[in-house]
Every structure is written in structure tokens, then in C-alpha cells.
Nucleic acid binder design. Structure first.
Lengths: 187, 187
DNA sequence: TCATAAGTGAGACACGGTACCAATAATGGC
DNA sequence: GCCATTATTGGTACCGTGTCTCACTTATGA
């Protein structure tokens, strides 16, 4: 039932846009009351992207499973593989929803709001791999690496959704994460 | 007058928190009507951080002024100097406001919402320095570099506001941007 | 059959934000 | 000094998201 409502939300939002789709519209289309909607979903955004909620925990575990002495950037790149495979395995609908998320400011903002959770979960493991003290809030390095990685993922998704026949996520992500760490140095 | 209201907003928000400070509270304290408030400021968040609004344009110009063959990462680091100097030159209040922004999810999200503007403005110059085509939306590299830099700035601000006697912004930023581009590589 | 619990719907409310309209104050020409 | 114009202010109604409470219905189990 939650699933049925979620599909309705996706349909409406894909057709009319996120801001344009009101919760009352959703309730009318799904033939439920506002009360029921908010009992199923905490917010409109959760109804759209609820299934993605577990990603941070997943990535944390995937990261912990990488060889202990692997450099953080390399470990992150590998740990991201299952996630992007899952993305890519879905149908065209997933890409359209992703594009919607990338192009709707309010949605992109809420998406980034969850970055705090990524930082929280990933920091200990990244700090360890950097040889830094995870508890030292004055050391920006772990957070910088995580933020950079998230930024690369974001840039990857933006590039992926921009073209009609996109390259593979894996390829784009390699390009993004490659340039972030192997920059052209002056002369 | 705008300035007077802005100070009132800062006072209230610093004392009670962002979410807890209602617009009606602000209007009561500043002795203006809601209408007037919304005529001065587009939103509650703008009343707090309006003065920072011009930063993206500023950084774009500073970036364009760097030597044409300088690597993107180095150019960004240098271009950021005037901005962080300005931050650091302010009083303790600025740091408290920054801490508030970093620690309030809704505020941090709105702050990141403006990242879209950074991307938009900085992409051409970064793409040029990367030797990429600025118009090619399928190339994630420029966006990845920008996102990584923004992430470093964010991590820097977080570290800066975390401790009571912080190191200099310049030092923290060097550390953050250094780790992002000179990673430990797997032997 | 009755009692309890779970799901459902309805309504009121708080808050951010927009739109519109009336009143008031400031300005400039005469 | 007076009037007309214009800008600034305030008031009110409104929309949408999200929270809360309460009453109702429908299963479930003894």
C-alpha cells in the first residue's frame, strides 16, 4: 500500500513536476486522506525517494569491507560500485526521477540535507584510513574527502541525466573522481 | 533600516536558534509588520545571510584574475583568499553565525542550495583550465572539481567553528584542500 | 458477542511565504 | 501653503507543508 502510493507520487511528479504536485493532488489520485499519507510518509520528498534512504549505511558497510590499508579515495570508489550498479540496473524511470531531483532546487537541497548523515557515518572510517583522529573536530581532512566524494557523485548524476543516451555511471564516476585527485598541476 | 532588522534577526536567532525564531517574533522585536519584513527580505534565511550573497560572483572574478595556465585547484585555492580573509576579519559574531549555519540542517541545506550558483558561475573558467568543453554537460569533471572545492570550504568552516580557539581559516583550508588532492595512494 | 486495538479520516493549528488592498507618509509642481 | 502623485507601510486573506488530536470504523482475539 505504501508502495502503491509511492508509485502514484512518482507518476504525478514525473508528469507535473515536484512543486506543482500538491499533497492534496496525491491524496486525491491515491484515494487516501492527508492523514493516511502523512502516516505512510514523513514528507512529500520521502514518498519520492524513500527507497534510497538506506544508502549511507550501505556505503559505510561496503567501505568497512574494503582492505584496511586501501587509500580512502580508492576505497570509496570501490564501495560505490554496488550503489551505482543498482541505479543503473533500474529502468528509464529511475533516470527520469534522478534528473528531476538534480534539476529541482528544493529537491536537490533536501537531498543534500542527507549529506550530514553520510559525513556522520563515513567519517570514522575515512579518518582511520587517513591516519587522522576521528574525534578531532578541528581536523577537516576526513570531511573534505567525504564532501569531495559526494560532490563527484553529484556531478556524475548530473552528467548522467543530462544526455539522452548516457555513458555508464561507472565510466562517468571514474572520470569525475579521477580529475578530483589527479589534477593537472602547473607546468 | 534593512540593516537594523538584520541585526535583530541575528540577535534573536543567536539566542533562540533558527527554527525556534519565528518571523512573527522577528517582526515583534523589530516593531515592523510581516509585510514590511517580506518586502525587505525574500525569506528568513536571507535576513541572516544576505550580505554573503555576492560571494559567487566575487570568486568568479578572482578566479578569472589568476594566471591563465594555473591548475584549477591551485587557482581556486588562491582565489578563495580574499573571501576567507574577510570572514576572519569579522568579529566573534561571524563565527557564531557560521557555526549556527553549519549545525542547523535546514540552514546548511539552504546554504548548499546556492551551490548551484557557484557551479553555474565557476564552470566555464574551471572547464577551460581543465582543457574541457564548458558546454559539454556529459563531462562531469569541472563540476566535480567545483563540488570538491566547495566541500573543502564546508569542511573548513565546520572545523573552524568546532573549536573555541580555532586555527586560522587559511591553515585549515590548506589542510582540507591538500588532502583532497594529494591522497595516500595504495602502494 | 463483546472488548480491544489498529488503521482511517476529519478538523484545527502553526509556520513560511504570496498577493492584494487600504491607509498613511513623503515628494514635487503649482 | 496646497494639491496630486508616488512610495512605504500595515492588514487581511490565502495557499501549501507538516503536526496534532479526536472520533470513527474495521479487524482481531477471547
Amino acid at each position: 500500500m505504501r508502495a502503491a502510493v509511492a508509485v502514484t507520487v512518482q507518476d504525478l511528479v514525473l508528469e507535473h513536476g515536484y512543486e506543482e504536485t500538491t499533497i492534496d493532488d496525491i491524496c486525491a489520485a491515491a484515494e487516501i486522506s492527508r492523514s493516511t499519507f502523512f502516516r505512510c510518509f514523513h514528507s512529500k520528498e520521502e514518498a519520492l525517494f524513500g527507497p534510497t534512504a538506506g544508502a549511507p549505511e550501505y556505503l559505510r558497510d561496503a567501505l568497512a569491507a574494503r582492505p584496511a590499508d586501501e587509500a580512502p579515495w580508492v576505497a570509496i570508489r570501490h564501495a560505490l560500485n554496488p550503489l551505482i550498479d543498482q541505479y543503473e540496473g533500474h529502468d528509464e524511470r529511475t533516470r527520469r526521477l534522478t534528473r528531476l531531483m538534480v534539476n529541482t532546487p528544493a529537491l536537490a537541497a533536501r537531498h543534500r540535507e542527507k549529506n550530514a548523515r553520510w559525513h556522520e557515518l563515513l567519517r570514522p572510517e575515512i579518518a582511520r584510513r587517513l591516519g587522522a583522529d576521528p574525534a578531532d573536530a578541528a581536523d577537516p581532512r576526513a570531511d573534505a574527502v567525504i564532501a569531495a566524494a559526494l560532490g563527484c557523485v553529484e556531478a556524475t548524476l548530473a552528467a548522467w541525466t543530462a544526455s539522452d543516451r548516457p555513458r555508464s555511471l561507472s565510466e562517468i564516476l571514474d572520470q569525475a573522481m579521477g580529475v578530483a585527485f589527479v589534477p593537472q598541476r602547473p607546468e
